[in-house]
């Protein structure tokens, strides 16, 4: 991960910053410059909104052979999460017993180290999710 590439995405990765169309109100994550529905009409009318970080699991998998950068965390859980504002995203589910991960389970975002560019490069922080205990 290059430093500029990491830096550019900080608002989205740290704070789940999304966009809302000023025309139709649709929320997109990551933010878009143009609404998919309103297209050019929405240019210049896209507002920035933060997602709450709450959502639920649409589907998931426990990876036993994952991306090389995540190998020390194997097996680790990856899930598609539907946020309460609507947009879906892909993220790790951490700090849980794997048996407790279920479709429909409620989750909330946490701030974690996602990746690092070796021991001398940039550390990339961002969102992961944990199960919400009822």
């Amino acid at each position: 991960m290059s430093a500029p590439g990491y830096w550019r995405e900080i608002p989205q990765r740290y704070n789940l910053l999304a966009s809302r169309c000023g025309v139709c109100g649709d929320v997109d994550f990551p933010p878009r410059v143009m609404c998919q529905k309103c297209r050019r009409e929405s240019i210049g009318r896209m507002e920035r909104v933060g997602l709450s970080g709450r959502g639920n699991i649409v589907t998931y998998s426990i990876l036993h052979t994952g991306m090389p950068a995540f190998s020390d965390q194997k097996p680790y859980v990856i899930a598609i999460i539907e946020t309460e504002e609507g947009p879906r995203l892909t993220a790790q589910i951490v700090d849980c017993r794997h048996d407790d991960v279920k479709i429909g389970a409620n989750v909330k975002s946490v701030f974690r180290k996602v990746n690092e560019d070796g021991k001398e490069g940039i550390i990339s922080y961002g969102y992961k999710f944990t199960l919400v205990k009822e």
């Binding site: 740290y14 020390d72 965390q73 790790q92 951490v94 700090d95 946490v110 701030f111 974690r112 180290k113 996602v114 550390i123 922080y125 992961k128």
Partner: peptide
Amino acid sequence: PGIDEDTATISVE
């Protein structure tokens, strides 16, 4: 700390 935790993540939380 978990593999994905450090002083920055603990501080932010």
